[in-house]
Nucleic acid binder design. Structure first.
Lengths: 157, 157
DNA sequence: GTGAGATGGTAAAGTAACTTGACGAGTTCG
DNA sequence: CGAACTCGTCAAGTTACTTTACCATCTCAC
């Protein structure tokens, strides 16, 4: 019984909600769902959202902290902290970069690679479930529109 | 499997990126863009993303903290903190709820209403720009797909 | 080759945006 | 009336970052 049954005139409830607001909300909820499922599959897993956001940017043959920072759009210090966590969990390890004495490469361990595949599977399963719910055509349209949107958003200005 | 040459180098580099990953990225970038524009319009504005997220849920005739918490999906304590900030900035004020001695209604000040309209305008302008860039049809499809997706995501389980 | 700067990474502390837990004042209902 | 619930706040903790400062290494012009 959260609120009165009559719809309040908040600006969140205009006749046609802003598409961008929909986008924000959908992203938040999808993220929540995916994490729920990951945790359901591995109850004592202490990998947090920030860590999973890093995973897809680590190359299989290792990636520098600085590169990861550039790819994710956060500072190298922040990446360093996340890598510290992941190293403690045994998901990645740092190895010296043979090409540069200053640099170190963040590499997956076997456990890390396995977790990566598991996470990817969960994401794809969630996507499949959602596609079934809203119809594959809508999901395709969503994919197409988002691809175009990202091309525009990432375009140099 | 990791040595299989067809295995993607990083998850971000698959041939067809996960639609959900696209969704996450698009949301993040849109949010960034919108904030950029708001700040460009009002350089010394100290309203932060968390505050703006609260704005659209405040009814014009006032809303309780508890109601705001339910609408935004965060705790009432967190809402209380945000309202403290907004009150200090002169955007909202708390008035006693005549219907319930425990409750207080969060109401906009004139300055708050003005800021609300400004922010909404920025969001709509960004959306219009993006629609022009990717084509109105794609934007409509995006809107339609997201609406369906949200209906599914918010459905009680 | 060598010194000036750029680059890779770490350390420490601060901040934003939350959370959990405890609690007192006010309301509703059996 | 009293028990149970609800509204809001205070306090402390957590997550996910950031800014500032710093050293080690590399690159390049001279």
């Amino acid at each position: 019984m959260p609120t009165d049954p009559t719809f309040p005139q908040t600006l969140a409830q205009q006749k046609r909600q802003s598409t961008l607001q929909l986008l924000f909300k959908a992203a938040r909820l999808c993220n929540e769902r995916a994490l729920e499922r990951v945790r359901a599959g591995a109850p004592d897993l202490e990998v947090r959202p920030a860590h999973t956001a890093l995973f897809p940017h680590i190359d299989l043959d290792g990636t520098r902290i600085t590169t990861l920072a550039a790819r994710t759009g956060i500072t190298k210090q922040a990446v360093g902290q996340l890598v510290d966590d992941l190293e403690r969990m045994g998901m990645v390890h740092r190895v010296a970069d043979p090409a540069d004495g200053r640099a170190r490469l963040v590499c997956f361990t076997d456990a890390g690679r396995q977790a990566l595949l598991h996470g990817l599977g969960v994401l794809m399963a969630l996507q499949a479930d959602l596609a079934r719910a809203i119809g594959p055509d809508r999901m395709d349209a969503l994919h197409e529109a988002l691809t175009a949107l990202l091309a525009e958003l990432e375009a140099p200005r």
